[in-house]
Design a protein around this nucleic acid. Structure first.
Lengths: 234, 234
DNA sequence: TGAAAGGCAATTGCATACACTTATTGCCTT
DNA sequence: AAGGCAATAAGTGTATGCAATTGCCTTTCA
């Protein structure tokens, strides 16, 4: 092996492969149903098959790839039903996070949440979808962290990444940006006044709407991975 | 255990190792913090290190083992805080399942749930803890299935297995059996009358109580894996 | 002409071998 | 005697090789 780990620095080769392949699935470079050939991947990343195999095994546990014994691995393909179930779970999980946030966020966290949220209003006016997406991701991460529950955070983050391949689709839906911001606003307001129930409900509805917007693009009709930049605007 | 793949028939060697090692962690044969030597495990199960390594990697993703790069793997040791977080999440998840059950269970599922629940009353009167534990597990599984949401089911089952090593402790707490049954009864009643909110609350409380009963046995004070039979009576 | 059976190529699964990292022990120095 | 350094051993991480299973293609027979 020559100068291997140049751009992806950390950990063992296996970790790098998990991230590399996982990213390509989550960002849609590798599309659901696509075959994952061990030898090709090994050649592609200039490593041996061993770390690739281990990575595929781990990704399979994460639910991002599907492994058929002796028959290779493919990017996980989810049924319409399971996709709906994942969005539903996501809504519940985000609801819980928001409720916890309302009850547990520190003063600093509340302030930071509001400041970032308010500053993102500018992006909506400008229609800066890509930048808004960055803030959106950060906003949701804040909610997960603010729940002060490491395990909920874990479940939520995992589910979110499994859903990622199916959310990309709903970008640039008419008026979605402004609506997204308003929904965020409802969540923030409820959290700031410490109303856990309202915050939970608002967050749940927020995700449910995203779910509906994405449902169209389920199995069979794959989004065509327009570019490497993912724009979701949820 | 010598005759390795006698009772665990299926799949590849890796799958067998995941189950074999995972079972030993969940049932407490391998205790949190215990070192997992690849060579020893390989010798123990009469396979090469490769499938053992893959299994450890997958178990690490599942959260059952902890892996320090170049420094070996140990059975996952959770902090007091993270344990509390897992129980909390579990309570929320079971609450969601129960709520969904109340809304979605079919007539057949409702009938089966009640019949099994009622028949378990006999075990309480007899003080048959081990048998009750079997019904208890089945009861909770029914709740997960009855939610009709594959992903919630997945999250719940995973979390439950990660908690397993820490629940064994609270067996045979005075009167826990009868209390457990009463709590189950509240859940069943609410589900049967279609009251999702009440069912959710009841299930949440049920798990919270188990949490409190188990909290004592967190880090440092490991349960001493009395036998291979696990009795939880939650 | 179609279908079934057998063989061949390709790919996965496991084992072994080698390289590199970390921990430990003993020795040397201060 | 104590602390640090060095050498060695133990154990993890990656590569390669070989066996076995799968799917396809060809060939043959009805």
């Amino acid at each position: 092996m020559s100068g291997k780990r140049s751009l992806i620095r950390s950990g063992t080769t296996v970790d790098q492969m998990v991230r590399a392949i996982g990213d390509r699935i989550v960002t849609g470079v590798l599309r659901p149903g696509e075959k994952l050939d061990e030898a090709s991947l090994a050649a592609r990343f200039e490593v041996s098959r061993t770390p690739v195999r281990e990575a595929l095994g781990q990704l399979s546990v994460m639910g991002l790839v599907e492994r058929r014994p002796n028959r290779g691995a493919i990017v996980a393909v989810v049924t319409q039903e399971h996709l709906a179930s994942m969005f539903e779970s996501m809504a519940e999980l985000e609801g819980i996070c928001a409720r916890f946030c309302a009850e547990r966020m520190t003063g600093g966290e509340r302030r930071a949440l509001e400041i970032e949220h308010q500053s993102s209003a500018r992006l909506v006016r400008l229609g800066a979808e890509e930048d808004y997406e960055y803030f959106n991701t950060e906003f949701h991460s804040r909610l997960y962290r603010g729940a002060h529950s490491t395990h909920i955070q874990e479940l939520t983050a995992t589910t979110r990444s499994r859903l990622a391949p199916f959310r990309r689709a709903q970008f640039r839906l008419a008026g979605r940006l402004a609506k997204s911001w308003q929904e965020h606003d409802a969540i923030v307001t409820a959290i700031l006044r410490g109303d856990g129930t309202a915050a939970g409900t608002a967050a749940k509805n927020h995700v449910s709407i995203v779910s509906e917007a994405s449902a169209v693009f389920a199995v069979g009709d794959q989004p065509k991975a327009a570019s490497t930049t993912q724009v979701t605007a949820d």
